[in-house]
């Protein structure tokens, strides 16, 4: 019989609250609208999409005007990724015709939470014409 290792109490509590925080974030995103930019951080949130297949999780992120060499895909934990990239040039509100806001953006930044167990270390990254594609293999049940 396999013996299930028990997590130390503190780790279990942390993990519980982290999960709760993520659930809250997801709920907040659904219920409350917010702008797709963060003036303080100078970042814009890109459009993103996710598809779960039987073998992998495919994440795509639309990153127009991105400097490819600046692209960062960072796993934060077992199911969360942070994606950031520098833009080729600074973008400001005036270009979008919005004169009532002031500020500029230099980067894209977003978080992605994967809904099934995956092997982050085996993730394959493709970037073409400003579209980022992440292929993350799913953990197979034994």
């Amino acid at each position: 019989m396999a013996i299930k290792k028990r997590k130390p109490v503190r780790g279990a509590v942390d993990s519980y609250f982290n999960g709760l925080e993520r659930e809250f974030e997801r709920w907040r995103e659904t219920l409350f609208e917010r702008p797709s930019w963060n003036l303080k951080a100078g970042t814009m949130e890109p459009l993103k999409d996710m598809k779960v297949t039987s073998t992998e999780v495919l994440v795509t992120v639309d990153l127009p005007l991105t400097v490819e060499s600046s692209l960062q895909v960072k796993p934060l934990d077992v199911d969360t990724l942070e994606i950031s990239a520098k833009m080729r040039r600074t973008v400001n509100f005036r270009e979008f015709g919005a004169t009532h806001h002031k500020g500029e953006f230099q980067r894209f930044d977003c978080y992605i939470q994967v809904p099934v167990p995956v092997i982050m270390d085996d993730m394959k990254i493709k970037f073409k014409k400003g579209l980022l594609e992440l292929h993350i293999p799913r953990k197979q049940r034994r």
Binding site: S36, M44, L47, D62, P64, L65, V91, E95, F96, G130
Partner: peptide, 14 residues
């Protein structure tokens, strides 16, 4: 202007 349009159209797309 493709990339500029993609950037500008994010919110409407959303």
């Amino acid at each position: 202007k493709g990339e500029e349009i993609r950037l500008k159209a994010r919110d409407v797309m959303q």
